[in-house]
């Protein structure tokens, strides 16, 4: 009895507040926009019994999904989200790998401190960390003042409200997610392998490529997915740092819902976004599984 109660409480909670809401999104994505409250049709009329249910299902159609393929805005937004995520993930790796490497090679007694310094920003508000860049990247911002004082540029650079600002924001906020798994895989590595390679005549550089890089591969893959997957649906960074030309699907969904009040299209955008995310999520799960098997 106890066991059943133990299973049922979290189970029912998740069914009611995760699965059912998603079913509703799916249903509304198949409905039509209407001038009513709530602004879509058809409504399920259970009072009309079987006839009502039949009428309800016969009115659902794929119209919104066809609309998504026809209007340029949507598929461009999906593509541009993928592109931005991909480039941002590569940039984060470029910044994160040397840091994780440096941490793993740092004297043992520094490491807990360094680890805490990486994790600390993760506990501070995401919104505030993105906001911090607004004052730095603005036209009269700290960065431009500094560059002009140095004499590197004579005109202030336009960075805020461009894609470059979005990349900086993503690398900045997602860096811990990249560093931690890479650091974990480098920390586990047996350093005597490197000594053996050098004894056998490898240069430091080729020892890195032949030993360290392959052994940290799992960490790199995990870090890349941990950045790539959430960035696709990112909303805050493109809204605050991006400009009118920055197209990301999370922002499109938000605007579709709050500004255009087109719930059916917003729901269809959400369903397609999820379908796109399924592939990287499955790949990520598989990578984690492989890693667990390798350890166990």
């Amino acid at each position: 009895m106890r066991r059943i109660a133990l299973i049922l409480v979290p189970y029912l909670w998740l069914l009611a507040l995760f699965l059912v809401p998603f079913a509703i999104v799916l249903k509304i994505s198949l409905s039509d926009l209407a001038m009513s409250i709530p602004p879509y049709t058809p409504q399920l009329d259970l009072a009309a019994g079987w006839e009502g249910i039949k009428a309800f299902f016969s009115q659902l159609d794929l119209e919104n999904y066809i609309w998504l393929t026809q209007d340029e805005l949507y598929w461009k937004a999906y593509l541009s989200s993928l592109k931005i995520s991909l480039i941002a993930t590569a940039l984060t790796l470029l910044v994160g790998y040397p840091m994780a490497y440096g941490m793993a090679r740092a004297p043992e007694e520094w490491r807990p401190m360094l680890l805490m310094l990486v994790i600390l920003p993760f506990w501070t508000s995401f919104l505030i960390r993105v906001y911090a860049w607004m004052g730095i990247l603005a036209k009269e911002g700290v960065l431009n003042q500094f560059l002009m004082w140095l004499g590197v540029v004579s005109e202030p650079l336009v960075i805020l409200n461009t894609n470059i600002a979005v990349y900086i924001g993503i690398v900045y906020t997602y860096l811990p997610f990249m560093i931690l798994p890479i650091y974990a895989s480098l920390d586990r590595m047996d350093n005597s392998l490197l000594e053996a390679a050098e004894d056998l005549g490898c240069s430091r550089f080729s020892a890195f490529w032949l030993i360290t890089a392959p052994l940290s591969k799992q960490g790199v893959i995990a870090g890349c997915f941990l950045v790539f997957i959430p960035v696709i649906g990112e909303f805050v960074i493109p809204s605050l740092l991006g400009g009118s030309k920055t197209l990301m699907i999370g922002k499109v969904l938000w605007d579709e819902f709050f500004s255009n009040r087109d719930w059916p299209v917003a729901s269809a955008v959400a369903v397609v976004l999820l379908l796109i995310l399924i592939i990287p999520i499955i790949l990520f799960q598989r990578n984690e599984q492989k890693q667990r098997e390798a350890e166990g």
Partner: peptide, 18 residues
């Protein structure tokens, strides 16, 4: 854990309205 926040938010709002 991997669901974009915009989707989680949208789906819960639609539930509450429903």
């Amino acid at each position: 854990l991997v669901m974009p926040e915009v989707i989680t938010g949208l789906s819960l709002l639609l539930l509450f309205i429903g």
